[in-house]
Amino acid sequence: MIAFRISVNGTKICTAGIGPRGVLSVVVSQVAGAPAALLEDGHVLISGLDSDRREHSLWPSPTLRIGDEICIEILEADAVDPPWRRFPCAESYRDALLLHARAALSAFARSVRRDPDGQLATIAQSARDLLSRTAAAMVSRALGRPGARAERALIVEQNSRRICVAGVPRRGHVMCLITWAGGERQGSPSHFWFSVSGWNVRTDEDLSWGRPALDVGDHVSIRVGRSIEHDAPTRRAQDRTRRR
């Protein structure tokens, strides 16, 4: 079966696979100018959809910090790591959100029951870290020199060849998506999808840095960093749906 072997800073996270029919995806995202950006510099989501079982699967998805590098290898594998969680296909997007929320709340409740004092200490430490990062960001912005400054960016390479340095100034998000889709019908071909895209909040533009071809044997490296200069998008488009 087609599988994605995912590692962060050289440490294996998982080998994810879904079988001959379905969808397997890895999303590396980065948000700028939002509260979430104070808690993490980037995030990885590893998920799949098994068409035969009509099940969604989730694998461990770590948060990322500046300097972290995530590597995705596309390979054929006889065995893969079991997902962290499986749940039935939802009838609607709202149902899917509710399933995610219930799973997160249940996991948190179980951990609190096992170690209430430890969990409360963890929450308090997270609040202190958030306040500290917020204060540091405000001081840095107030005392920073005028002119160009290093903004968050995703540095993307494929087979050791640079694809782009993708970033959005001040407010917006950047996302690198790698997806494999198996045939819905017996004998129909599978295909890969690889794209680097984003959204600039200030200009209300959808951005694209290209859609390179991808195949078995390729490996993609995505580093979370800072850069004063970003590569210009290959495509810009106004998103009119957000204006309604």
Rank of each mutant, 00 (worst) to 15 (best):
S197H: 10
L99Y: 08
S160D: 13
P20V: 06
A135L: 05
W209G: 01
G17Q: 01
P169H: 08
A135H: 14
R223M: 13
S61L: 13
R244K: 14
S195T: 00
L177C: 10
W199L: 06
F87V: 00
V27S: 01
H230A: 07
L24I: 08
I222T: 03
T122V: 09
F4G: 04
A124E: 15
A136L: 07
W180T: 00
R21E: 02
T15L: 14
R110L: 10
R85W: 02
A96P: 00
G217Q: 07
S208V: 00
R162P: 12
V156L: 03
R85H: 04
A104K: 06
N200H: 14
G225T: 00
R243Q: 12
V27P: 01
P35M: 02
S227V: 00
G147Y: 05
L120S: 05
R21N: 06
V220L: 03
A90W: 12
E40G: 04
V224L: 11
A96M: 11
I163E: 01
P82F: 10
V31M: 09
V168C: 04
K12R: 13
S132A: 11
F4N: 04
L24K: 01
D218R: 03
D218I: 04
T122Q: 12
D239N: 12
R65Y: 09
A232E: 09
D239Q: 05
R94I: 15
R65K: 14
I6L: 06
S188F: 13
P62M: 07
A232F: 07
R211H: 10
Q30P: 15
E151K: 04
D218G: 06
S111M: 14
T15H: 07
D52M: 12
W84S: 08
D81N: 06
E40S: 12
Q238C: 14
A77L: 12
G118L: 03
A135V: 05
